[in-house]
């Protein structure tokens, strides 16, 4: 009897070990996929590469296929979808926009309802709505109050999430003055994001380096809008000192300023 018990125990322990190893290796695998997703996203944004963005989407998709409750992967997926919206607007590709718009909304709602990453989820949802306004300016009438509310909630949930201030800054930058836009507010929000990235960002989800680069690029644009070329150039050069291959700044924004200065 005792030997049966002993054998059974051995078997159970072995099974548990095998299973835990399997779980461990799955976790390992998830972590690898997550890191790879993050790397692809970062590189895609820096190099403005659509294929890498698709690859990032693929990595996050693999995790979510196996584990639908993986919030880190869900955040990564929404972030990439949000970037696809941006890309589709740059290319004037309506079908690409529509392909990602509904899905990003559903995913963002899922992340918010999980309650763990409220600030990150609400900031991204605000950003997605902002893209919708960019694609269809009249939707500002119905969406701007939603965006303001989401960003206020996001800031309250986590005052050190740089994305909140980047999205708010973009809203202030892109909205006409008559409807509440303000370059001064935009600059202040981008600077807040810069400071958070330089000091102590408090989000395990947000890629601080990218947030830092993006806030600097927007800060430069806001300064350029009011013809403060010295400050704009500083912001761009600072971004390039962090990431020399940042193509948006390197090939578009900085040369534009230099051309204006020459004129």
């Amino acid at each position: 009897m005792n030997s049966v018990l002993f054998r059974s125990s051995i078997l159970v322990l072995t099974l548990m070990f095998v299973l835990s190893q399997n779980e461990y290796s799955q976790k390992e695998n998830f972590n690898d996929l997550l890191n790879s997703g993050k790397t692809f996203t970062y590189k895609a944004l820096v190099l403005h590469d659509k294929d890498m963005l698709l690859e990032a989407l693929n990595q996050y998709g693999k995790i979510l296929k196996a584990d639908t409750s993986n919030l880190e992967a869900l955040y990564g997926l929404i972030f990439v979808e949000y970037r696809f919206l941006e890309l589709s607007l740059q290319k004037g590709n309506d079908s690409l926009f529509n392909q990602y718009y509904q899905s990003s909304l559903v995913n963002a709602a899922k992340l918010i309802s999980a309650n763990k990453y409220l600030s990150e989820g609400k900031s991204l949802l605000a950003g997605i709505y902002m893209m919708k306004i960019a694609s269809s300016p009249m939707s500002a009438v119905t969406l701007s109050s939603k965006i303001n509310r989401l960003l206020n909630d996001a800031e309250e949930a986590n005052p050190k999430n740089p994305t909140t201030f980047i999205v708010r800054g973009e809203m202030k930058y892109n909205t006409p003055k008559l409807f509440g836009g303000s370059i001064e507010d935009a600059v202040n929000n981008f600077n807040k994001a810069v400071l958070i990235c330089e000091q102590n960002p408090d989000s395990t989800l947000v890629d601080t380096e990218w947030a830092y680069l993006e806030s600097l690029a927007w800060l430069g644009q806001a300064y350029a809008r009011i013809d403060n070329y010295d400050a704009a150039k500083f912001a761009y050069q600072k971004a390039l000192s962090i990431q020399a291959d940042f193509s948006w700044v390197k090939y578009i924004l900085l040369p534009k300023i230099e051309k204006k200065e020459q004129n």
């Binding site: 600077n191 810069v194 330089e198 800060l219 010295d230 500083f234 912001a235 050069q237």
Partner: peptide, 15 residues
Amino acid sequence: PFVNLFIQNSSDGTT
């Protein structure tokens, strides 16, 4: 707060 301080024509600076 949020003043940009930098050396002209360089990336050295802060907020």
